[in-house]
Design a protein around this nucleic acid. Structure first.
Lengths: 111, 111
DNA sequence: TTAATGTGAAACCAAATGGTTTCGTAACGA
DNA sequence: TCGTTACGAAACCATTTGGTTTCACATTAA
């Protein structure tokens, strides 16, 4: 799963559905590992490894509290994603406005 | 690399840096495979496989033209990403309003 | 002190991933 | 017609990935 250390990037971090679900979960509140893993069908250890990937990407932050380790969302790195996306919005907006014109023109099509 | 077929998802598709670069390249113009692969240090076949992953995710469309296969960007699936991202904007906006000015101008650019 | 709880590290595993080379086949250009 | 160009399918390979089980170590509760 990713022994980590070599800094994961945000694109890769969110590629996995489990990790995306983790982010949503941790956006609501800070949680300790065991509590987190109750929301998943996989082992606590597996969840723990996903958390490490997210932490590597800077998407969650961990805080030790007694014998617990609590994790919470750290949304900043998602900015990179937003920036990346922004570049493409241009293109799809062109396309969509073209489509809108087409539709408004009462889609005569035929090809 | 991904023999494809089982429908790739957009999150996974953009996880790879080469594929992100492909998307940018194809946003400018439709291109045939050989021309595309000249922009990459990997083999034409490898590029071809990446293109298939992107096609599976609906991010590029291919068109046969004689002996060439031309690919072009199909940005719509990125909407899903935008939607996903939108959920988190809430959180970072609280946190970042101050930091924002700072971050804004830091030309990250991944390719 | 002793037992139970919370967690990560390790070792291991199967499958997916990113890459290569080789080959077959269609389409062009001469 | 013949050689060349454009491309994907196949087979193969090393590494990464997502998962498991087992173990060691703190911290807390009895």
């Amino acid at each position: 799963m990713a022994a980590s250390s070599a800094k994961h990037d945000v694109f890769q971090a969110i590629a996995d559905p489990t990790r995306r679900k983790l982010l949503k979960l941790l956006s609501k509140e800070e949680m300790p590992v065991t509590a987190i893993s109750e929301h998943f069908p996989i082992s606590r250890t597996a969840v723990s490894k996903h958390l490490r990937v997210l932490a590597d990407a800077g998407l969650v932050k961990e805080r030790k509290a007694g014998r617990e380790t609590r994790y919470k969302l750290e949304p900043e790195p998602l900015y990179e994603l937003k920036d990346w996306l922004q570049y493409f919005e241009l293109f799809w907006e062109n396309k969509l406005s073209a489509l809108r014109l087409f539709v408004e023109a009462d889609g005569k099509e035929d090809e």
